[in-house]
Design a protein around this nucleic acid. Structure first.
Lengths: 204, 204
DNA sequence: CCTACCGATCGGTAGG
DNA sequence: CCTACCGATCGGTAGG
């Protein structure tokens, strides 16, 4: 009796399909550049049907952004829980975060960088809270790096510069390029981590 | 006889006004999130009047992006022409680039980071060519830094990480904050420049 | 989830 | 540059 009927299951699938299709289009053409009909059509739905799953267009964007953020955050939190040196943790976090940004299945995370700004009210607040958790996690990683003598500073600015570089990668990344996602992540780590006692860090 | 009539001068002024108003709104709400009427209204114009100055909405975006790019590029080129050490040039370029991104009068440059993607055809090609000049200029600056022993590498990746960090600053910059634009630029320079012989650069 | 539909708004134009 | 307007498209709804 409490067992879900066939229709419910299918509805749930379509909901997920919608989120994935929407994320893809929002990413390519922006939130306002994508119509709900277009999203529907891309998965053979009729124009009005998405509103059976979401009260309005903004809620659909929210679902995309939230899904992307939570999926990535879960992976990062898992790494945070492992026993790792400051350097190894930093590298693992960077690799995973970049994988979330670039791997095809999840167009959701890149949306977080820009499109979340179109959210308002409660939707916006919830996403900002999730972003806050990201930032705290990364600030801690920088702080550990600093304590281990591998970063000259452990403040927000260092962290934001790093995240800026990381989040911009989807803008120029070429999947056909020579470097794998992991190698790319490692290059960014290499450019970020440095001895806190290096001449450049002391003097400049 | 060849002297411009009063109307022409006024038209030119309105055209500039339009670009500035459009850039401001495009920046806040995105290209597709801003209607032409909204831009017009913000400077007390009627709904159809912008189309006296621009053939269509996309051309207006193009004008914004082009103006922002060219203004910044002119300033950077001037610095490039000065006699400076690799480090001093790098710092001057960074300060100026960031000033173009953050100073109020010109909302145009931040558009270049994201909204230019909505351009098509010739408009798009022209902007891509200008962006190319930016990249070449910065690659050269990195190459000089490398030759001077102040950067472990001189490739595109280093340059793109740096530009990613730089272009993300408008997303979190607080004009009321403690750091001035110049101080912020100098912090980014400090994090980017390092001795090519530092332990971190050698080992990692 | 589809069919059929609505009011609002959009980019753009003609004519002055 | 304004007035007045157009066709197209949009987000969203009712009713099944």
């Amino acid at each position: 009796m409490a067992r879900p009927r066939r229709e419910d299951i299918e509805s749930d699938n379509r909901r997920e399909e919608l989120i994935i299709a929407a994320a893809h289009l929002f990413r390519d053409k922006g939130y306002h550049g994508t119509s709900v009909r277009e999203i529907a059509r891309s998965i053979n739905m009729r124009a009005g049907s998405p509103f059976y799953h979401f009260a309005n267009k903004e809620d659909l964007l929210f679902a995309c952004v939230e899904k992307g953020l939570k999926a990535c955050l879960a992976e990062l939190d898992a790494i945070d829980g492992e026993e790792l040196s400051a350097f190894d943790r930093f590298r693992a976090l960077t690799r995973t975060h970049l994988k979330c940004l670039l791997e095809n299945r999840q167009d959701m995370l890149p949306l977080v960088v820009n499109e979340w700004q179109h959210l308002e009210g409660r939707n916006r607040e919830e996403i900002m809270a999730l972003r806050q958790r990201f930032e705290l996690l990364w600030l801690k990683a920088f702080s550990d790096l600093n304590k281990a003598g591998l970063a000259p500073r452990a403040d927000k600015l260092s962290c934001w510069f790093f995240l800026g570089a990381l989040h911009a990668i989807p803008l120029w990344y070429d999947p056909q390029g020579k470097l794998s996602i992991t190698e790319l992540a490692d290059r960014l780590v290499e450019e970020t981590v440095r001895s806190a006692r290096s001449p450049a860090a002391r003097k400049l």
